[in-house]
Amino acid sequence: MSKNLLSALFGAAIAALALSPSVYAEGQELAEMHAEMDGCEACHADGEPSEDGEHEFEQCQSCHGALEEMDAVHQSHDGMLMCADCHMPHDSNVGDKPTCDSCHDDGRTAESASK
């Protein structure tokens, strides 16, 4: 195939994805959304939670990237927290964003933490 044809097909695919409605609705439970993708094994080894949460943490990072690669709010928690400490998949919904005051009571905000 020619490069122009491949470029056109790629561009059309990107446009179709950008214009298509999201498969996952705000308000849907995070765990449910992940289970729809690949069953409980999307996050859990053999579908069962690990004792220490390490396997699940590694699964998060395999799709979403490491905390050290994310924005300043995530970077400051690298080495101290696992994803599920803030983004509780069985207690949070798609679109929920934890706030600093979920854990900190000293007036921190995402904006102040990223400075």
Results as ranks from 00 to 15, higher is better:
R108K: 09
A42Q: 11
F10G: 01
F57V: 02
D106V: 12
C43A: 07
L81F: 10
H44S: 03
Q61N: 11
D85V: 05
Q59M: 14
H90K: 04
T109H: 02
G11L: 15
S92I: 07
P89K: 01
Q75D: 05
A13D: 06
D106K: 08
P49T: 06
S92N: 09
L67N: 00
E41D: 12
C100D: 02
C100Q: 04
C60A: 10
V23W: 10
P98G: 01
L67T: 00
E51F: 10
D101E: 15
F57G: 02
Y24D: 01
M70F: 05
E56M: 06
A72C: 00
M33W: 04
Q59R: 07
L67A: 03
H55W: 11
E36I: 05
K3F: 12
L6K: 01
H77K: 07
L19W: 02
K115V: 02
D96T: 01
F10H: 00
C83W: 14
L30N: 00
D101I: 12
A13P: 03
S50M: 13
T109Q: 03
M1N: 03
L6V: 04
N93H: 13
L5S: 05
A8K: 07
Y24F: 14
V23F: 11
H87W: 04
D52P: 01
G65L: 13
Q75I: 09
S22Y: 12
F57C: 02
A42C: 11
S92L: 10
A18T: 08
A110Y: 11
C86S: 07
L19Y: 01
V23K: 04
S76D: 15
K97E: 13
S50Q: 08
A13F: 15
D85C: 08
G47Y: 10
E54Y: 06
P21A: 13
D71F: 12
G65W: 11
S22A: 15
D78Q: 05
H34Y: 15
D91P: 00
A8M: 12
Y24E: 05
A12D: 07
N93P: 00
A25F: 08
D46I: 03
D38A: 03
A31R: 07
A113E: 11
V73K: 00
C83H: 04
T99P: 00
D91M: 10
L6R: 01
A113I: 12
Q61R: 06
E36K: 04
H77S: 08
E69M: 14
H64R: 06
E111G: 00
T99K: 03
M70C: 06
A15N: 03
E51W: 08
C86M: 07
L5R: 09
D71H: 11
M88R: 03
M80G: 00
L17N: 14
I14H: 00
M33E: 07
Q61D: 09
S102E: 10
S20I: 08
R108L: 12
H90D: 11
M37L: 14
E68P: 00
Q59V: 08
G79M: 13
M70T: 01
H74M: 12
S76W: 13
E54W: 07
H34D: 05
G53P: 05
M37Y: 09
H104V: 08
D46F: 08
M70Y: 01
E51R: 02
H87D: 04
L67G: 00
E29Q: 04
E48G: 01
S2I: 14
